[in-house]
Design a protein around this nucleic acid. Structure first.
Length: 110
DNA sequence: TTTATGGCTGTCA
DNA sequence: ATGACAGCCATAA
C-alpha cells in the first residue's frame, strides 16, 4: 500500500460520526488539492476491516458512487459496498432522500 | 519509458 | 434538475 494513501486515510479517520465528506474535500485536507480521483482510488484499495470510516466519503453530489469493478467481496471495493455504505451511514443517523442522496448542507463535514 | 485506467469535479449545453 | 466533456494525476502493466 503506497505511502501517499496514508495521508488520505488519516483525514478520513477524522470525519466525525454521523457526517460525511467529499473526495475533493479529503484531497484538499490531505494537502493534495485536486486529486479527488486518487482518493477514490485509495478507498477502493482499502483492505476490509481497516480502521478507516470509508463509508463516510461520498462524491460531490452527496451520493454513493457506483463501483466499476466486479469484485464480489463485501469490503470497500466490492459490489456490496454501495449497500453497506448506505446502511452504515443510516445507522449513524445520516438520512438519504428517495434518490439515495445525502444533504451535504446538513451532514457535510466542516 | 509510455499508455491506459479510473468510487472525481467543475463547467457548459 | 441531468448528462456530456475535458482536465486531473498516481498506479499498474
Amino acid at each position: 500500500m503506497p505511502h501517499s494513501w496514508e495521508r488520505f486515510y488519516a483525514v478520513v479517520r477524522r470525519i466525525p460520526r454521523g457526517r460525511v465528506a467529499t473526495y475533493g474535500q479529503i484531497a484538499t485536507l490531505a494537502g493534495a488539492d485536486g486529486r479527488a480521483r486518487q482518493v477514490g482510488y485509495a478507498m477502493a484499495a482499502l483492505p476490509e476491516g481497516a480502521d478507516v470510516p470509508w463509508h463516510r466519503v461520498v462524491n460531490a453530489r452527496g451520493e454513493v458512487s457506483r463501483r466499476s469493478g466486479g469484485s464480489a467481496r463485501s469490503g470497500p471495493g466490492g459490489h456490496w459496498a454501495e449497500r453497506v455504505q448506505r446502511a452504515l451511514l443510516e445507522a449513524e443517523g445520516v438520512a438519504f432522500d428517495e434518490r439515495g442522496r445525502i444533504d451535504l448542507e446538513r451532514y457535510g463535514w466542516e
